[in-house]
Design a protein around this nucleic acid. Structure first.
Lengths: 191, 191
DNA sequence: CTCTTATCGTTTGGCATCAAATGATCGCCC
DNA sequence: GGGCGATCATTTGATGCCAAACGATAAGAG
């Protein structure tokens, strides 16, 4: 563990000094700033504890989880439920299929679509893994009371819901006047 | 926008059905499950609104932010403050340096270390960009009252603090008996 | 001084991730 | 039933990201 670490409180004091003159939404800044930090910390902890022996990443676990909860489902729906893009899901599900945890089958009525489901081994893994995963969820939030956990979850849901509902329009408004440089990422059109 | 989307509440009903027989920490699950979701949503919104015209990712913005708040700092400290690994910071700071936003200078007393700081252009950018960034932080959390924002931030800080304090020991305990396969990622020892 | 050990930042390998392009297939209209 | 646009999963290219290996330097022991 490296030496002198600045506490979060110290950080916020430094911010206050630096921004003393500016009007700003301090509450919003505190909330948003900590969401990403907490997400990274929790993800790292879970990947390096319960998921590590099974060589699963956070994302591949979430995909298994979605299939466990919802049963057989179409890929676009799994991607949305897991919060990843369809392209990412293609890679993840290929990996999980090669490990025998996930099965892919063609949609009976539409050959463009693909259905994903857990194999029996996948089910077995989740039945064994999920209690351990949940125990770690409990560990990371053990300093909060159940009521605080629910309030936390509720606030986060509110934010997600707001972005799902109004985010796209907001971005359109903000970027209306801009002419954006083409993104670096993404496939190039063939010449 | 794709068609029938399952609401979060529907999801949680399905979970209850699937896990009806298992004892589990539902509050913890709700909290952890939503942290990652909210973080991804917020990050995506900010990258695709205020950060997009400046071609900054979330992470590179955070690095600029840390340097803006703390001034000149050593790389390990910036990495920790930004919540990324040293290796990632190397790439980020190289990019930011090539764009003239960040300067690197050798430590006066130890030639292994490197000091990072904002260039005047970097400073100028942050003075202009931060208010817009903060306005979007306010937008994403506008459905919450200031008190709810503070409570949210506080709960998240509690989780981060707990993991910083007890996470490593917990992982050691959990993995004590396991013999882990070597990780897929990471540099290979030369033969 | 020489040797060893610790500690920097950087490099490297592998996966995750996204968005746009792409090809396959479907639905519809005439 | 032939064609045309919409919609699906996949491919592709670039970047983000981590952890371990690595080279350079510092600090300590004898």
């Amino acid at each position: 563990m490296p030496g002198p670490r600045r506490s979060i409180t110290e950080t916020e004091q430094a911010i206050r000094q630096r921004l003393g003159g500016l009007t700003l939404q301090r509450e919003a800044m505190a909330a948003v700033g900590n969401i990403h930090r907490a997400a990274a910390a929790v993800r790292s902890h879970l990947e390096n504890s319960v998921l590590r022996p099974h060589e699963l990443t956070w994302t591949s676990f979430v995909v298994l989880w979605v299939l466990w909860i919802w049963g057989e489902a179409e890929t676009w729906s799994v991607a949305e439920e897991a919060g990843i893009s369809k392209g990412t899901l293609t890679g993840i599900s290929r990996t999980l299929e090669s490990r025998g945890l996930v099965a892919r089958s063609p949609h009976p009525e539409d050959r463009r679509r693909v259905l994903l489901s857990l194999t029996p081994e996948g089910e077995k893994l989740m039945e064994e893994l999920f209690p351990a995963f949940n125990a770690e969820e409990a560990f990371v939030s053990a300093s909060l009371s159940p009521e605080e956990c629910l309030r936390l979850a509720d606030s986060l849901r509110t934010i997600v819901g707001r972005l799902e509902e109004h985010g796209e329009q907001r971005r359109r408004e903000l970027l209306a006047g801009e002419d954006l440089a083409p993104r670096r990422s993404g496939r190039r059109p063939r010449p």
